[in-house]
Amino acid sequence: MTDLHPISLTVNGREYTLAVEPRRLLVDVLRDDLGLTGTHIGCEHGVCGTCTVLLDGASIRSCITLAVQADGAEIRTVEGLADGAVLHPLQEEFWNKQGLQCGYCTPGMLLRACELLEQTPDPTAEQVREGIASNLCRCTGYAYIVEAVLAAAPRMRERTPAQTPTETTGAQA
């Protein structure tokens, strides 16, 4: 087979050393080699944003990024958002606001929203709409996603852990 290239990736704080074919897409390495299947594949040509992950803090399309291009990088995927049992404020607000239906675009949307709120901690609805325009959602019509991001913004600004620990019960008005 083709020559393999050694790469190292730090994914969600954990370091991995791998040998990959240069053509392997980052999304496939994350999913198939590291078992992190939360990063989904939507179009494989960089349009839909389903495969979005953070690479050194910046959102990228992992379906049009070669794994060798990420050598040495720090990567964050949806699996790295929650702190154990406690959901990330964005996850919590997506749940509260019903910012998802089928859940397929959700991981990419969450990571893009993460970057957006780090760059624009107190965004307007318009800024959120424009910010998440990079990621397609076919279910929700985006409205509740925008609400969720806006609701998460103050919680992320406080930089405190989620105020209410995630429980499996409880209604939301």
Partner: peptide, 9 residues
Amino acid sequence: VAHPPIRNS
């Protein structure tokens, strides 16, 4: 130019 995730790369 496209979207921020594209511009990041």
